[in-house]
Design a binder for these strands. Structure first.
Length: 537
RNA sequence: GCCCUCAUCGUCUAGAGGCCUAGGACACGGGCUUUUCACGCCUGUAACUGGGGUUCGAAUCCCCAUGAGGGCACCA
């Protein structure tokens, strides 16, 4: 039976790279009627948090990647958290100790660092081996357990990359039990993959060099290893690795720009505005730390658009789960036949390891944006309504106040003209409150006395419309308004500015209907007052 | 530095020796449509990293060079 797993460590949010790994494992299991296991690798006691684990679960659920075995959302830790399996690891750790395959080592981290530094200075690779000279002898300090890796070439057939071979003197004796008694990743992963019956390990290529070590462990334990497949990595467009630090990097860059541009802005005043100690902000700006909380606060204070990295970033930016999944699947995998818009079912039936390429890909946000727009345009009202409700759960736009009925109206107006739900949320603000008049638009469309005369004529035309104020009753008057200008459309822009505040909005007819007569007339009047009080030069 | 891996348009990719004057999509340019912005439609620019082989024939196979990426933790 095919059984795959996704095994994140709960040290942060689920980022798109992890989501892709999860997706491929999920697709592979689902395609062949196998099982998909989710396991939380929380063997790093310092960095792992329960909130992070819960967040990863929530993100996977939002993506619709369901697991057959694993943690139960909302429940306490179960067997699929490695921190709950210490007894199991200890049993096998003892087995290796007794068989002589593992041994204790006593170096402190500082000693190891010194040994590495010396090796580097002498221009030779550092490998910790049992028979190397200068090993520390048992002392008062805690010890770790290391696995004695045989001095043999390890060969295996990677299902994506083909035959891989690593020479015997490249190995070193990895730590398998840390001094805090927890197993290391290398050990826990082998034990769990075996015990959980994982048949295929599909993971990112950054793990390729771990595989020989894991294979050594399988052999020492007397187990048959699973098949391995290492997928190409995903990078930013500038070829840097996509990482959560991209967000702090962008925030830091923005702060430095603003400080340069705006002399009145200082670290102190900014920190005060953000409600944090200026020493913290200082440290952040000087790259001494990358606190995500500061990054977030900075984005709020400076109104920044940070690059989306984590799954929840994309959710908050108004990407649809299906679109994100479809897009991510296409980085490093292709179904052939020039196909790329693929439903979840198509993805599943078309997926194969053979379709996975060997070259690293770049994350092209422009294409994702296009694809998300395609998904939005193809979705029916109900589907979009659901997506918006999900979006509203994690964002704070005025759109949040809208009833389902109003949302349906807005969907009709924005479906064709939005790339993300956030664009709709942003652009539809004027439906929920007074418009913010853009000086540029006023200057362009209400520059002359003739423009202001048109504004009054528009108001006069609209005022005469009897109830009901609807598409039918507005159609004729709208034509008259358009006919007002010498250029077709010029007068319509005046009305558009009046109701929306800017030069861009959905078609006026629908816009006016949704706004209602009272609001429309009021905004017309308000704009007239504005331009009269401050006559354009 | 050492080890491993990879190499087709700016980007994602199709291509498994002749179907390739290298196909599709995004992005970009031009045009049409249009009450704004979009959407839509038509259309254009654009790639086999280089050098050696193998073969009647190479984007496809082999070697070397170059370039890119990954790994070298008591992180996963």
């Amino acid at each position: 039976m095919i059984r795959t797993r996704f095994a994140p460590s709960p040290t942060g949010y689920l980022h798109v790279g992890g989501a892709r790994t999860a997706l491929f494992n999920w697709l592979f299991a689902r395609k062949y009627g196998g099982e998909f296991v989710l396991r939380i690798e929380d063997t790093d006691q310092v960095r792992s948090t329960a909130e992070s684990a819960a967040g990863i679960l929530a993100d996977l659920q939002w993506l619709g990647l369901d697991w057959d075995r694993g943690p139960v959302p909302g429940d306490a830790k179960n067997d699929y958290f490695q921190s709950m399996r210490l007894d199991i690891y200890n049993e096998y750790l003892n087995q290796l100790l007794q068989s002589g395959a593992a041994y204790e080592a006593y170096e402190t981290p500082a000693q190891l660092a010194a040994m590495r530094a010396r090796a580097e200075k002498e221009k030779r690779p550092f490998r910790y081996r049992k028979n190397m000279p200068g090993r520390a002898s048992p002392g008062a300090g805690p010890s770790v357990l290391r696995f004695e890796m045989p001095y043999e070439t390890v060969e295996f057939n990677d299902l994506i990359l083909g035959p891989i071979s690593v020479g015997g003197d490249e190995h070193d004796d990895i730590v398998i039990r840390k001094s805090d008694g927890f197993p290391t990743y290398h050990f826990a992963v082998v034990v769990d993959d075996h015990l959980m019956g994982i048949s295929h390990v599909l993971r990112a290529q950054e793990h390729l060099m771990n595989t020989p070590k894991h294979l050594g462990l399988y052999r020492a334990l007397g187990w048959t290893p699973p098949q391995h497949a290492h997928m190409p990595l995903v990078f930013n467009m500038d070829n840097t690795k996509m990482s959560k630090r991209d967000k702090s990097k962008a925030a830091r860059h923005a702060v430095q720009m603003r400080l340069k541009q705006d002399a009145s802005l200082t670290i102190d005043s900014l920190a005060a505005k953000m409600g944090i100690a200026s020493a913290s902000l200082q440290a952040f700006v000087q790259q001494k730390m990358d606190d995500p909380a500061i990054t977030g606060a900075l984005a709020g204070a400076l109104n920044l658009q940070l690059p989306e990295i984590d799954v929840q970033d994309f959710r908050r930016s108004g990407y649809l789960a299906d679109a994100l999944l479809n897009f991510i699947a296409l980085i490093g995998w292709s179904p052939g036949e020039n196909r790329e818009m693929l439903t979840r079912d198509e993805l599943r039936s078309l997926f194969s390891l053979e379709g996975i390429g060997k070259t690293n890909g770049r994350f092209d946000r422009k294409k994702l944006l296009w694809m998300n727009g395609e998904y939005i345009r193809q979705a029916d009202d109900q589907k979009l309504l659901k997506a918006i409700e999900s979006f509203n759960l994690v964002t704070e736009y005025p759109l949040k106040q809208a009833s389902a009925k109003v949302l349906i109206d807005l969907i009709g107006m924005y479906r064709e003209r939005m790339g993300t739900l956030a664009e709709m949320a942003e652009n539809s603000r004027f439906f929920f409150g007074p418009p913010v008049y853009e000086p540029k638009a006023i200057k362009k469309y209400l520059a002359t006395e003739a423009d202001i005369a048109h504004l009054r004529q528009i108001a006069a035309i609209l005022r005469e419309i009897p109830t009901p104020w609807d598409a039918a009753s507005l159609a004729g008057p709208m034509e008259s308004i358009i006919a007002l200008g010498d250029k077709r459309g010029a007068a319509a822009q005046i009305l558009r500015v009046a109701v929306s505040g800017g030069a861009v909005s959905p078609p006026l007819l629908e816009t006016l209907v949704l706004l209602g007569k009272d609001v429309t007339m009021q905004r017309l009047k308000e704009l007239e007052g504005m331009v009269q009080a401050k006559p354009p030069v």
